[in-house]
Each structure stands twice: as C-alpha cells, then as structure tokens.
C-alpha cells in the first residue's frame, strides 16, 4: 500500500515535471539564444491549450479528435508565435533589459485578456477518448493512463531537442549563438533569421505542451501564471540555455511539488522558491549553466 501510493505520487510528479520541462525548455532556449526572457511564454502555452480545445470540439464525435488536435494546436500556436516575433520581438533585440522585460510582460497581459475575449471565462474540459479513460496499473499502483502519453511526449521532445542541438547543422548554429552571437554573425549566418526560428520553435514546444495539458484537466484562465513562475524556477535551477539543466530542474521541481503537497500542502510552492533561491546563491548560473555574456 505504502509503496504503490508513493509510486503513483512519483508518477504524477514525473508527469508534472515533464510538463514543466516542455514549457521551460522553450523559455530556456529563447533566453539562451536571444537573451530575451519571455514572460508571455506560459500565456502562449495556455493559448495552445485553448486552441487544442477548439480543434477538439470541432471533431468531438471522433475518437481521434484529441490526437489530431494536439499537433494542430502546436502548429497554430507556433504560427502565432512567429507573428509575435516578426511584429514585436524583432524590434527589441538591441534594447535594454528592462525594455525587453516590459515588452514580454505586456504581451502576457494582452494575451491573457485575448484568451478571455476569445474563449470566455468558463472552464473548458476535453472529454478523453475511451482508450485513456481508465487508469493503468503499474506495480499495482493506479496510474492515469494519459500520464504515460504525457511522459512519452516529454521524453520525445527532450530527445528530439538533444538530437537537434547535437547532430544537425542548425542545432550547431543555435548552440554557437548561445556562446557568441558576434562570431556566428561574422561567419555569415543571418542572426535575425535564426532568432525568428528559435523563437518559433520555442513557442511550438509551448503550444504542444498546451495541447497535451488540455486533456489533463480542465483548461482555466490564470493557469499560466502559476506555471510561468515555476518555469522560471526550473530554468534558474538548471541554468539558462542548458537542455540537461532544464530537464533536471523540471524533474526536481515536479517531484518536490508532488511530494510536498502530500505532507505540507501550504508550503509546496514556498519550498520550490526556497530551493531556487538556495541554488541561485550557491551557483548563480544554475546547476548546469555556464556564465553567459552580461
């Protein structure tokens, strides 16, 4: 009993952690390459969730509705992110830190209200296809069968990003841009173009995560505000721009949150901030981060 209980708690922590990873990896990628901290990242994630709901409700009658809606939501969110980049973010590459922060902060405010205007204040709930309605028993512990899917997606994105950064030409450019933008640009690679696509990729992952999230529970306004703060904690713990760090950071935050909520529900969030602050004090660049240019 005790073991199965802890195991199912561990699995829900893992799911939550990987969901955080999906949000935080895009955030970290964008920050690492473009040096822009995207406050609106989780709001775009929530837009992805709502878009997924809309696609799903169009195809409601079919069993495959959810599985088609998730990639569609990711693409639609990425398109939206691309527009944001071209229209807005492009103008603030060379601006000062506070101006960049204010712009993305403003984007978060605007998109939050846009969601309210488009989808209204009522909670949205996706009815899961029958295949993932029943729990799955693993080592005798009941696990939400959709969690398996979430975990698979999280792992797939982690592996995919790792492969992209390690083995593809564009991945190498992105990695190089984290260390020295000037050098990359001196090699004749158009930095603005790279920026646009990195941003779009980050938002694509956020949209995918939103789509996945939409079937975990109901989609509600204001969900983004909790997750953005936790995603910040994740990238701070793991180190900006480090994929490995983001993954480890997400799992730490997910598991800590999942177990803390059992034993000390009121203090779960506080505990995460305490851990974050402690790590930032000991290692200002995070567990796996390297000192970035100022």
């Amino acid at each position: 009993m005790e073991f199965t209980f802890l195991f199912s708690q561990f699995m829900s922590g893992l799911t939550y952690g990987l969901m955080l990873f999906l949000v935080a990896s895009g955030l970290s990628l964008i920050f690492g390459v473009m040096n822009i901290l995207n406050f609106a990242h989780a709001t775009l994630w929530l837009i992805g969730a709502y878009i997924c709901f809309t696609f799903w409700s169009l195809m409601e009658a079919h069993q495959f509705a959810l599985w088609v809606s998730i990639p569609l939501a990711a693409l639609a969110t990425a398109a939206f992110g691309w527009i944001c980049e071209v229209v807005l973010i492009k103008r603030i590459y060379k601006r000062e830190l506070h101006e960049q922060l204010l712009i993305t902060y403003a984007m978060a405010l605007i998109f939050g209200d846009l969601i309210k205007i488009v989808w209204g204040p009522t909670d949205r709930l996706i009815v899961r296809p029958s295949i993932i309605q029943k729990p799955l028993f693993l080592f005798g512990a009941p696990i939400d069968s959709y969690f398996i899917f979430v975990i698979l997606i999280g792992v797939a994105v982690a592996v995919g990003l790792w492969w992209f950064l390690k083995y593809t030409k564009y991945g190498h450019i992105v990695k190089a841009a984290v260390y020295s933008r000037e050098m990359v640009s001196a090699l004749g690679i158009p930095i603005p173009k790279i920026y646009t696509w990195v941003f779009t990729l980050g938002i694509f992952i956020a949209g995918l995560a939103g789509g996945v999230q939409s079937a975990i529970g109901s989609v509600t306004l204001g969900m983004d505000m909790n997750i953005i703060i936790q995603a910040f904690c994740v990238v701070v713990i793991g180190g900006f721009g480090s994929l490995m760090g983001t993954l480890i950071g997400s799992l730490i935050v997910g598991e800590v949150f999942s177990f803390a909520i059992l034993y000390w529900p009121d203090g779960a969030m506080v505990l995460i901030f305490v851990i974050t602050a402690a790590i930032l004090i000991v290692k200002p660049w995070g567990l796996f981060g390297t000192p970035l240019r100022a």
């Binding site: 601006r95 403003a106 605007i110």
Partner: peptide, 16 residues
C-alpha cells in the same frame, strides 16, 4: 474590464 489588454498595449507603445 479589459484593463490588462489596454495597459499592455500602452506599455508596448511607450517602450517602442
């Protein structure tokens, strides 16, 4: 009721 929307737009205009 959409104050955040308006304030966000004002912020963007001011910064730009």
């Amino acid at each position: 009721e959409y104050w955040p929307l308006v304030s966000g737009m004002v912020i963007i205009i001011v910064v730009l």
